[in-house]
Design a binder for these strands. Structure first.
Lengths: 229, 229
DNA sequence: TCATGGAAGTGACTAAATCACTTAGTGATT
DNA sequence: AATCACTAAGTGATTTAGTCACTTCCATGA
């Protein structure tokens, strides 16, 4: 890096990550209280808070008022979506679909060749619940694509797709809810699922490409210029 | 929702982002001093610092001791690499190459069809400097792939490749420096460049796949079990 | 012209409190 | 016996006030 020495809070954030690793803490576990952390590392509470805020921004920890500091899912992630992203535009939505169109067909092909029983089961479950409305912030309609990437066996690909789908997730769901045919989506998901189950990589790739192309076209024809509200 | 109201610092982080947008500040510009921000939003300095630390973690701002708070490149980014990632293993490096093998050939094909003069020029510059050693944290050898993605015209694809290459970047460079044939890499880059210049998407896709396959094989045969140091 | 030095402005951190929320335990009520 | 309301302890959230360290810049002097 350009800076030789890091600030206290930056150093402290690394130390806390190291502490989490050395104690083998996983998502959901409780971290030491901020007061104890302050004592342990011989700094004051505001400094600890800065370090924790930093870690919170990338999902490594989660601070719950009155309860404690908990380990989040961010520790094992390599790539993530920026929580502060630019406003949505028509172009940005289409850009996203085009990016997915480049990336996801290859993932589908890989998933068809690398599938296993557990992955197939999760994929089937995701396809089955795709028509249910979003609850608790989880969007079943998008979950199928994440599980498809997970079935490829490559964690980085899963994270990449997850991050891309997290980009402007609320607006994406809103738009698909208004302009997309979810029954057709579901039918296409089932076709992809069948191809993956049969181990037919070429078909999975082709079907995924068709699926995303259909979505892109429905977005391109739809006029949502004033749909920002 | 799970939590109805956000904490002060979380709300404040959003407000600061909004302030940056409303004043049309870009990377390199100076943000208001933390004391002034505290006055403007009627909170105290530690709270401001927490919000800034949060934004710093995702690259939205950069705090320089004694100088000021500067806008960083993170504001316009949608997907980024996690600064606190797990330790490197042999499997994780190969996983990364496999992920790139799925994603980048399609990007090369898109770049060949969407290329323009400016993009080609940047791509040529990246290829020309690829043999130079890393300086100031910039790794010319990896830059070619980022510029290739940029030439596709899709910003999200560029960010995705950039984030993937940022994952374990130092270790990656180290490994390639030790086990990879950089002259061969360079020759293959030039081939890809020629295909993109000719607008031959199929060739660009094939050459990129070959290029990454070669890298993967050289990593699989290399024994870097004890190269963690 | 150029180096020196110091003042002003900035972020970094400390210190001691108080406030607000969650949780679990306790006891009374049903 | 089961349930509910209350209480107390532990936790994060925020404030207030102040000191320290770094950077920048400009005036000063050689």
């Amino acid at each position: 890096m350009t800076q030789g020495r890091a600030s206290f809070s930056e150093q402290l954030a690394d130390d806390i990550v190291q502490l989490i690793r050395s104690e083998s803490l996983g998502p959901g576990d409780v971290l030491e209280s901020s007061r104890d952390l302050a004592k342990r590392f011989a700094v004051t509470t505001p400094t600890v808070r800065e370090a924790l805020r930093r870690l919170e921004a990338t999902g490594v920890v989660e601070l719950r008022h009155g309860s404690g500091t908990y380990i989040g899912p961010g520790l094992e992630r390599s790539v993530l979506a920026n929580p502060h992203r630019p406003h949505i535009t028509r172009a940005s939505v289409i850009e996203l679909v085009q990016a997915r169109l480049v990336i996801e067909p290859g993932i589908a092909a890989l998933a068809a060749s690398a599938r296993d029983a557990a992955g197939l089961q999760r994929l089937e479950a995701a396809a089955a619940t795709a028509l249910q409305p979003p609850v608790h912030g989880v969007r079943p309609a998008l979950n199928f694509h994440v599980e498809l990437a997970a079935a490829s066996g490559n964690g980085l690909l899963r994270e990449t797709v997850e991050a891309l789908l997290h980009v402007r997730a609320p607006e994406q769901t809103e738009i698909r809810f208004r302009y997309d045919d979810r029954r057709r989506d579901h039918a296409e998901h089932l076709e992809i699922l069948a191809a993956v189950r049969d181990g037919d990589g070429a078909a999975a790739e082709r079907l995924t490409r068709t699926h995303l192309t259909t979505i892109r076209e429905s977005l391109e024809t739809a006029d949502f210029g004033g749909a920002a509200s």
